[in-house]
């Protein structure tokens, strides 16, 4: 069974006014399946519809068209049954009353009818100490840790994390990634949205890229890199740049793009073309002073799929 199934989902927000109504389509005809047990990264620029999609999964909002299912439960009809199996780190949250962090965690444990030890959850997200303060006094990063601790209550089968690393310091971000991997190893499916691409790259099995409310790509990162026609970048620094370099290197099978930057030549190519590219420069009249290679960055991928609007 799929953990998440979205089929033909459209969400339009309409505001009614005396001088006419205004309508904004946040998500358009979205089809998406997230398999049980995978870590799925949900990417997209600001305003792409990521949080709206998560709102639909959690019954924070109703779809205008289409069907939403989580573990086979129809949303919104069976949303409580679905949320019994979900741990959520939502966007736009606030403290529940004037509770301390610990009281929030205890509330989540009680609501899930679980028998977790609040101390263990608090320890796991590194918020020992602040757990005794009212959450209203928390920094953004500490509040994110608290929400993560609440999300972990009851060993959920699905973790939905909306921009989980927002406000986290590097240690917090590392802890978050570690917890995501641990939960996945336990058997949980993880669905998280982010625009911090390194986070996605380091933990995700597959990614979906949303742009202007539409899903523009879904696959693993390697396949997406291959689809863009470039999976590596070779930067060759030379004593001088031969005039015919672009033409000669551009003819090599697997080369997508050749650019000159001063005495450096940057070649975007498939992995198998890297060696022939470097060899071509060695065979040229110029002296090769340095060679660096790297995979196509996720930034480039992101820009490719989202038309550079991020």
């Amino acid at each position: 069974m799929a953990a998440i199934e979205l089929s033909g989902v459209t969400k339009r927000y309409t505001s009614y006014g005396f001088f006419g109504n205004r309508s904004v389509t946040a998500v358009q005809d979205l089809d998406l399946t997230v398999r049980e047990g995978e870590i799925f990264g949900f990417l997209g620029p600001n305003g792409a519809g990521k949080s709206t999609t998560i709102d639909l999964l959690l019954d924070y909002a109703e779809p205008t068209e289409g069907s939403v299912r989580v573990f086979g439960n129809d949303i919104p009809g069976d949303s409580v049954a679905a949320r019994e199996r979900i741990g959520v780190l939502p966007d736009g949250y606030g403290p529940i009353g004037e509770r301390t962090g610990r009281e929030h965690v205890e509330f989540a444990i009680d609501a899930k009818d679980a028998d977790d030890d609040p101390d263990e959850l608090i320890e796991r997200v590194d918020m020992r100490g602040p757990d005794e303060y009212p959450v209203e006094e928390y920094s953004k990063g500490m509040a994110q840790r608290l929400m993560l601790a609440m999300a972990l209550a009851g060993e959920p089968d699905l973790l939905i994390l909306d921009e989980p690393s927002t406000g986290l310091d590097p240690n917090g971000a590392r802890t978050m990634r570690k917890i995501v991997r641990e939960e996945n190893a336990r058997g949980a499916t993880v669905f998280f949205s982010s625009h911090i691409l390194e986070q996605v790259e380091s933990v995700c099995d597959r990614v979906g890229i949303l742009d202007a409310g539409q899903l523009v790509a879904v696959d693993n990162l390697e396949s997406l890199r291959a689809e863009t026609g470039q999976s590596a970048t070779v930067t060759v620094e030379l004593s001088t740049v031969p005039s015919d370099v672009s033409a000669r290197v551009g003819e090599i099978d697997g080369v997508a793009d050749v650019r000159t930057n001063g005495t450096a030549v940057v070649v975007a190519c498939r992995n198998h073309a890297k060696a022939p590219v470097i060899a071509a420069f060695h065979e040229s009249a110029a002296d090769v002073t340095n060679v660096t290679t790297s995979e196509t960055s996720l930034d480039d991928l992101f820009e490719h799929y989202t038309r550079g609007v991020a």
Partner: peptide, 17 residues
């Protein structure tokens, strides 16, 4: 108030109808 403060977002993320 719970709605505007975001507290309901947390409450309705838990299995409350």
């Amino acid at each position: 108030e719970k709605r505007t403060s975001g507290a309901l977002t947390v409450v309705l993320g838990l299995p409350f109808s």
